[in-house]
Amino acid sequence: MSSLLKITDLHVSVDEKPILKGVSLEIRQGEIHALMGPNGSGKSTLAYTLVGHPKYEVTSGSIEIDGVPLNDLDPCERARLGMFLAFQYPVTIPGVKVADFLRHAVTNIRNPARKEGESLIPMRDFRKELKDRMEELGMDVEFARRYLNEGFSGGEKKRMEILQLAMLQPKFAILDETDSGLDSDAVRVVSEGLRKLAGPQMGVLIITHHERLLEYNVPQFTHVILAGRIVETGDASLAHELHNHGYAAVRQRHPAEAAEEQEHQKVAPKVAAIAK
């Protein structure tokens, strides 16, 4: 039986400011969903909330995997239940080698009951697996010895996120603008990488502004988020339309949310300036 990630009427605040205002979404293993929306509409907020970022406070609603509520679980516990986020802005962890980090991560995810200090997966098997995955993603194996994201270019960071996805094989993967800020070659690599990884064992939520990622990974569902609410859900053609024509039509169809978005942008002019 395939697993189900169920988000029900989710309300989320950051610093007491409501950002998500009732998001409901169901993702099954094996499905690909696209989440689109203008800048500042709450896409990253949803992503962070799903993995349990402490800054994002769920004021009501629920997140469940196969009926197990995640609301009170910390990011580590959620990860061990199969949740994964490819971060929009992956942080640097100075001095921590990619291989050491991944060996810990892989051990914990594959053995969710593992306690601190218990042994890690055998070095030789791990090395081999890591090398294979890196080669599949066209990554120089030297990266395994580098410090996590330190001095990585934008494209290298995003590739590193995909490598982690490949190694951890989560049940549910959220990709937050993994294709942004990359040249077209890098977008292709990331897109192909995801296509190889996403299969019947993975439910995928792709947050994107571009088409390329979705061409390689055609979504069964496309959701449009505006001012913290999912206002429309369609198929791949909706993603195509949004890409070609922008959000003007969406705003017209949902004047209430568009007004809220306007209101919101007054208080957050910086976001407005870069909004699409």
């Binding site: 990860a79 971060f87 942080v91 921590v96 914990n108």
Partner: peptide, 21 residues
């Protein structure tokens, strides 16, 4: 958050950051 979202407990994550430091 980054390390914990990859399955590290808070203690492990902190220790890893310190070890890296």
């Amino acid at each position: 958050l980054y390390l914990m979202s990859r399955g590290m407990s808070e203690t492990e994550a902190s220790a890893m950051i310190v070890t890296g430091f």
